[in-house]
Simulated scan of single mutants.
Amino acid sequence: MKQIKNPNGYGSIYNLGGRRRKPWAVKVTTGFEKDNETGKLKQIREYLGYFEKRTDAIAALAKYNENPYDISTKKIKLKDIYERWCNTTDFISLSDSTKKSHALAFNKLENAHNMPFSKLNTNTLQILIDETGSTPTVKLQIKKLLGNLYLYAEKYDIVTKNYSKFIDVGDTSSKIERRIYTHEEIEKLWNNLAENKWIDSILFMLYTGFRVSEMLELKIENIDLENLTMSGGKKTAAGKRTIPIHSKIVDIVKNRYDENYEYLFRTQKGTKMTADSYRVSFYNPIMEQLNLTGSGCHDLRHTFCSKMDSYNINATTLKRIMGHSTKDVTDIYTHKTIDDLKEAVELLEY
Rank of each mutant, 00 (worst) to 15 (best):
I4T: 12
Y10T: 05
N15S: 07
R21S: 14
V28S: 14
T38S: 14
I44V: 15
F51I: 05
D56M: 05
A59H: 09
K63H: 06
P68G: 05
Y69A: 03
I71A: 06
I71T: 07
S72C: 04
S72F: 03
K74N: 12
D80R: 05
R84Q: 11
R84H: 06
W85D: 05
E110H: 13
N111L: 11
P116N: 06
N121K: 10
T132P: 08
S134C: 15
I142G: 08
K143S: 11
A153W: 07
D157R: 11
G170D: 06
I186Q: 02
K188H: 02
S201Y: 07
F204I: 00
E217C: 03
D224Y: 07
S231R: 15
K235N: 04
K240L: 08
R241A: 09
I245E: 03
H246N: 06
I249F: 09
V253P: 07
V253Q: 08
K254G: 07
E259H: 01
N260I: 01
Y261W: 07
T271R: 14
A275V: 13
D276N: 15
M287L: 12
N291G: 11
G296P: 07
C297W: 01
H302L: 01
D309H: 10
Y311D: 05
H324V: 03
D328N: 12
Y333V: 07
K336C: 02
I338Y: 13
K342D: 06
E346I: 08
E349N: 14
